[in-house]
Amino acid sequence: MYKQEVIRRIFLCCILGLLFPFSLLAQQAVDVTAKADTNSIRIGEQIKLQLTATLTAQQFKDANFKVLFPVLPDSLDHFEVVTRSNLDTLVNQDQHILHQTFTLTSFDSGHWEIPPMRFEVFSGANATPDSAITLPIGVDVNTVAVDTTKAFKPIKEIKGVAWSIWDYWLYIVIGAAAVLIIGGLIWYLRTRKKPEPVIKTPTVSPYEIAIQELKALKEEKVWQQGDIKQYYTRLTDILRTYFEHQFSIAALEQTSEELLQNIKPVTKLNQQRDKLRSLLAIADLAKFAKLQPTADEHQECMQKAEEILEWTKPKTGAAEETGTDATLEKA
């Protein structure tokens, strides 16, 4: 009795050992197929080739289990790949079906075969891939039958199509829009208000600037250091700049005689013409004739310049702000 029980257990173990590899193989097996929607076409017609791989739910959920579909080139033997779809997944109860569709065509007449398709199956992270191969598919590519009993017909003439404005509606709309935009821009540019120029009011008047420069000239003691020409050049330039800014006279560009003639219409400035004439005469001799005026003449010229500024300085009223306080008289 005991011996029979032992023999029975050994026999069951042997049976299970033989069946275990087959069960593992069944778990790893993947059903792959390649089907065509037709096996007979005419030259230039298209075929839909459907590639599928069926996985169990356990295989689909396994992150290390992968199935790689075959990569078809643009040209096969006697066939051309027109389009190819993306890989898609269908769920059918406990199965997951991966499928991809290819559109093929052929321009060679005869009986041809779509070659077997090789799928790569990976069952583990570092496992060697297995191959699953489909069967070839035979396709007949037929030529167009020509009835040779009938006569050849002449080529038909080209027929004109009646003109319709609706054939050009897009161009008309674009042209009208362009005209409206251009017209709107022209109207806007012509009617818009031009920005008024901003006139900056000087914070320091020409009189104040001239007084400050005369003060700086005295403090530098230029003529005391022997630079007589520099002293009179700066002195006359201060007065000329003051006349130009205060009375709108181009004093910097005029000779001494021209300046004395142009100050006549300015009443206040004309009343100081004798002082200005004497100052300019000494300055011209010192700058151009190398005259050496005395110390008293240096101080007297500075005093005359200060008196001219004091006599012609603008009043503090709003009407005198721009230096137009000088009344004009006929020359």
Rank of each mutant, 00 (worst) to 15 (best):
226 G>A: 04
80 E>S: 04
110 G>V: 07
131 S>E: 15
70 P>G: 04
324 T>F: 10
141 V>F: 10
81 V>Q: 03
94 D>W: 11
93 Q>A: 08
215 K>P: 01
240 R>L: 10
46 Q>F: 06
45 E>G: 11
23 S>N: 15
37 D>G: 07
295 A>P: 02
293 P>Q: 01
221 K>R: 15
31 D>H: 13
176 A>D: 01
154 P>E: 00
302 M>Q: 06
198 V>T: 12
282 I>L: 07
167 D>K: 02
237 D>E: 09
260 L>G: 01
257 E>S: 15
298 H>N: 14
6 V>N: 07
31 D>N: 14
34 A>D: 03
308 I>V: 06
230 Q>I: 08
29 A>C: 00
145 A>E: 15
103 T>H: 00
217 L>W: 11
112 W>G: 05
132 A>Q: 09
104 L>N: 04
38 T>V: 07
278 S>Q: 15
303 Q>H: 08
314 P>Y: 04
61 K>L: 09
126 N>W: 04
314 P>H: 12
50 Q>S: 14
29 A>D: 00
221 K>L: 14
327 T>E: 04
131 S>K: 15
187 W>Q: 06
220 E>Q: 01
256 S>I: 11
136 P>F: 12
238 I>P: 07
163 W>D: 08
76 L>T: 12
122 F>H: 11
139 V>Y: 05
293 P>C: 03
277 R>M: 15
142 N>W: 02
174 I>E: 06
137 I>C: 02
289 A>M: 00
115 P>V: 08
95 Q>H: 10
17 G>F: 09
100 Q>S: 02
44 G>T: 09
92 N>C: 03
1 M>R: 13
11 F>A: 14
200 K>Y: 14
282 I>A: 02
35 K>G: 07
327 T>M: 06
240 R>C: 05
307 E>P: 00
159 K>P: 03
66 K>W: 06
12 L>Y: 13
125 A>D: 08
88 D>W: 05
96 H>C: 07
94 D>C: 12
227 D>I: 09
319 A>H: 01
71 V>K: 14
297 E>F: 09
106 S>M: 05
310 E>Y: 07
187 W>E: 09
107 F>E: 09
296 D>F: 11
275 K>H: 15
309 L>F: 01
94 D>E: 14
6 V>R: 07
53 A>Q: 08
281 A>G: 00
239 L>H: 01
322 T>V: 15
157 E>K: 15
150 K>T: 00
106 S>Y: 03
175 G>P: 05
21 P>A: 06
331 A>P: 12
97 I>T: 13
145 A>Q: 15
94 D>M: 14
134 T>K: 08
115 P>G: 09
88 D>E: 10
149 T>V: 00
14 C>F: 12
98 L>R: 01
28 Q>K: 02
165 I>G: 11
5 E>M: 10
110 G>E: 09
11 F>N: 11
110 G>S: 10
7 I>T: 04
106 S>N: 05
80 E>T: 08
96 H>A: 09
38 T>L: 04
314 P>L: 08
222 V>C: 03
324 T>Q: 05
28 Q>E: 03
276 L>D: 02
174 I>T: 10
7 I>Q: 06
89 T>M: 10
208 E>W: 02
134 T>I: 07
270 N>L: 05
107 F>V: 11
252 L>K: 15
36 A>D: 03
70 P>H: 02
57 A>R: 06
313 K>D: 11
106 S>Q: 04
80 E>I: 06
189 L>P: 02
166 W>I: 12
33 T>W: 00
49 L>E: 10
93 Q>L: 10
78 H>D: 14
